[in-house]
Amino acid sequence: MNHETTRGRHRAPGRHNPLNELKLLARESAQPAMKGAAVVAATGGLVATFANPASADTVSSANGAVAAAGVEAAPAAVGPAAAAATTTAPSALSKIGFAPAVQQAIAKRTPTKVRVIEDVQVKEQRAAAKAAKAAKKAAQKAAAEREASQRASRDLTRRSLTKSTSSSKSSSNDYTPSASSGSHSSRNWATRGQCTWGALNKWYQSEGYYPGGWAGNAMAWASGAASAGYTVSGTPRARSILVMQPGVHGSSSVGHVGWVTAVNGNEVTIVEMNALAGAYNYNTRTLTDQGGMRYIYAP
């Protein structure tokens, strides 16, 4: 029995070789673009090309045939398309990160405004220092105002006292327009605790000095002061020493003296020691002027 071998897709039993069959299909295909599709379809999706490289004439004639038939030529199955871009040769500046285009873009940027961030702690410290300075200044001003007020008050009091004393002297001197000044003493020469010592002490407090130039008991003071140069009168007047003879208004056998503080008609107010309050103590009395009473005027 004769077996006839027929070319095509019939394979002889026991002699199948996939590689040979792929080579045969690729060689018999007339279109280079169809070779890749035939290979992929025959191998179940495996991408491999075992076809012999086509010559330039074959590729050129095949592409022309595809274009004539109205079919777009497929790109090559293997290998990337040739890049048309031109690569710039690297320079020494580009190796250290300097790119002219980048630097130009940076130079064209709009400058960003600087924002000043406040230090809250420093701000609070400055505010506290300012407040402390203002408080100190206010305290100094208040102290100065108090001092000025106190000074003005003292001046007013001094003027009032001076005016009052002047008025008192003027009104009291209405009785005697002139009062002579006699001898002065540097100390209180009377016996301490007695009426004489108390009268001299009040004179010193009013006039600033002690009268002097006489001595003796209270009853002899009027004549002694007149001899020392002082004005002595029977008319009562403030700022004078009242001399009372024994028995007048309860005076002792040696007489009694006191300092006259006010006169109202024939009523005489005196401050006296060693009388109603006893030795070393003062008391005040108002007496009616009468005989046996003389007054030593302070100038």
Rank of each mutant, 00 (worst) to 15 (best):
G265C: 11
A262E: 10
V263S: 06
A275S: 08
T261L: 02
G278R: 00
G278L: 04
V268S: 01
M273W: 15
H256M: 01
V271W: 12
N274H: 10
V260A: 01
V268W: 04
N281H: 08
N264S: 15
N264T: 09
I270G: 03
S253Q: 00
N266K: 15
A262G: 15
N266Y: 13
T269M: 07
S253K: 01
G265F: 11
A275K: 07
E272L: 06
A279E: 13
S253F: 02
N274V: 02
Y280C: 11
L276Q: 15
G265T: 02
L276D: 14
G255H: 01
T261C: 00
S252D: 10
N274Y: 12
A279V: 04
A262Y: 14
V257L: 06
N274R: 04
N274W: 06
N281P: 10
I270A: 05
A277C: 09
N264G: 12
V254H: 07
Y282N: 09
V268R: 13
S252N: 01
T261A: 02
L276Y: 10
I270Q: 03
Y280N: 09
E272A: 05
M273G: 11
W259Q: 04
T269P: 04
G278W: 03
N266T: 05
G265D: 14
A262R: 14
T261D: 14
W259I: 08
A275G: 14
A279L: 03
N266D: 01
Y282F: 15
E267H: 15
S253G: 00
Y282K: 11
V257N: 03
G255Q: 02
G258I: 02
G265M: 14
I270Y: 00
A279H: 03
V260C: 05
L276K: 10
W259K: 05
T261G: 05
G278V: 04
S253E: 01
T261Y: 10
A262N: 15
H256E: 08
G278M: 06
T269V: 06
S253R: 08
V268G: 06
Y282C: 09
Y280L: 13
E267F: 09
G278A: 02
N274G: 06
I270W: 00
V263A: 07
V271Q: 14
E272K: 01
V260Y: 03
Y282I: 11
A279C: 06
S253I: 03
G265V: 07
N281F: 14
N274E: 04
N281C: 14
V271C: 11
N266H: 15
G258M: 08
A279I: 06
T269Q: 06
I270V: 10
I270R: 00
A277S: 11
A279M: 04
Y280Q: 03
N266C: 12
G258D: 12
G278Y: 06
V271P: 07
E267T: 13
T269E: 00
A262W: 05
S252G: 04
V254C: 08
W259L: 08
L276V: 07
G258L: 01
Y282Q: 12
V260K: 07
A275H: 10
S252V: 10
T269G: 02
N266Q: 13
S253Y: 08
I270H: 00
M273H: 13
N264C: 12
A277N: 11
Y282V: 03
V260F: 07
N274A: 10
Y280P: 05
S253M: 00
G258V: 06
G258K: 03
M273D: 14
V271H: 10
V263D: 08
W259C: 05
W259S: 01
G265P: 14
V263L: 08
E267C: 12
A275L: 09
A275C: 08
